[in-house]
């Protein structure tokens, strides 16, 4: 733009300052910008699309993880965030209209409100995440514990990052020679499970002694259910006897999807700040509001993605 400004000023007084040197007229530039933004948003949707496919595959294969995991999410906070985002979407749309009608003051107010909405969203998200971390729910392997284990989930020196090797039962257990082959493979299939994880393999051995004692599910259920019999709130996720194997997967997907969305909200904050800065400089008018319009489109899509994320994780 500055280049066009200096380059063309002398010989063309009709050309507005914001018109790039390669455009015929503002209309063409605006339409191109809009098409470009829509394409970019399509890539954004596809980016999340990959995660949504991952979500569907996991939900299809392991519905129990989602049933278990979703009760550890704070629906109230999620709902608040949904409302905040919807409101900020509204103020954003209002800001676009304000720019189109050349109402400078309203434009600034609306942009500020949108910015405030985005910040509020992240603050609430921060509290949600912190709470999860305090409960020991992290993205990644460190979270991966079996019920009844001592809670040393974030103690790197003990188990964290010790990648378990997976074992195949037929190989590790000396084969029962009397068993017919067909049965052996069934046993193997059962023990391997659909996810192929052998719980025993997680036990990290140090000095020949098993570090983690894994009680039988019956033991754990009995002891802990008694303890929590009269408590209304969900018990600590690690002690929950209903905790399915691979429960970490739900939270991993949760953190990945909401995390990526959070990054987009963060980008939105920078975007709003930049728009506000330019609005303060008086760049926008009913003649030129492309950045406001495109920023608005971006913000609506970020909002829309959350509208999908919220029910998928918190509600169903």
């Amino acid at each position: 733009m500055p280049e066009a400004q200096t380059h063309d000023k002398e010989h063309d007084h009709d050309r507005p300052w914001f018109l790039g040197h390669h455009w015929e007229n503002p209309q063409q530039q605006f339409e191109a910008g809009k098409l470009g933004m829509w394409l970019f948003l399509a890539t954004e949707v596809l980016l999340f699309g990959g995660l949504f496919v991952g979500y569907s595959v996991w939900r299809g294969n392991h519905p129990e993880l989602f049933q278990f995991g979703s009760k550890y999410l704070n629906t109230a906070m999620g709902a608040t965030n949904t409302v905040v985002l919807i409101c900020s979407s509204l103020t954003m749309a209002w800001a676009v209209t304000a720019a189109q009608q050349n109402k400078q003051k309203l434009l600034k107010i609306m942009l500020t409100l949108t910015l405030a909405g985005a910040v509020t969203f992240l603050v609430i998200k921060y509290f949600e995440y912190t709470h999860k971390f305090n409960e020991g729910i992290y993205p990644g392997i460190s979270f991966y514990q079996q019920p009844g284990e001592k809670s040393h989930y974030w103690d790197k020196s003990m188990v964290a990052f010790a990648r378990p090797t997976w074992t195949i039962p037929v190989a590790n257990v000396a084969p029962d020679l009397t068993m017919p082959m067909s049965e052996m493979s069934t046993v193997a299939a059962a023990a391997t499970g659909p996810a192929g994880f052998n719980a025993a393999a997680l036990e990290t051995v140090e000095g020949g002694e098993a570090l983690i004692h894994t009680p039988t599910p019956e033991e754990a259920t009995h002891a802990i259910a008694l303890e929590h019999a009269d408590v209304d709130q969900p018990m600590h996720h690690l002690q929950d006897p209903l905790r399915p194997r691979d429960a970490h997967m739900f939270f991993n997907i949760y953190f990945m999807m909401t995390g990526l969305h959070g990054i987009h909200v963060l980008l939105g904050i920078f975007l709003m700040g930049w728009l506000l800065y330019r609005a303060n400089k008086g760049h926008f008018s009913d003649k030129y509001f492309t950045p406001i319009d495109l920023g608005g489109l971006y913000w609506h899509v970020v909002d829309l993605i959350w509208i999908f994320l919220f029910p998928l994780f918190y509600l169903i």
Binding site: I168, V170, P175, M181, A188
Partner: peptide, 17 residues
């Protein structure tokens, strides 16, 4: 006739009935 095969880095193992 079923044979169990176990692959690992970098050898094959065949377990017979």
């Amino acid at each position: 006739y079923e044979i169990n095969v176990i692959a690992r880095q970098w050898s094959w193992q065949f377990n017979y009935p």
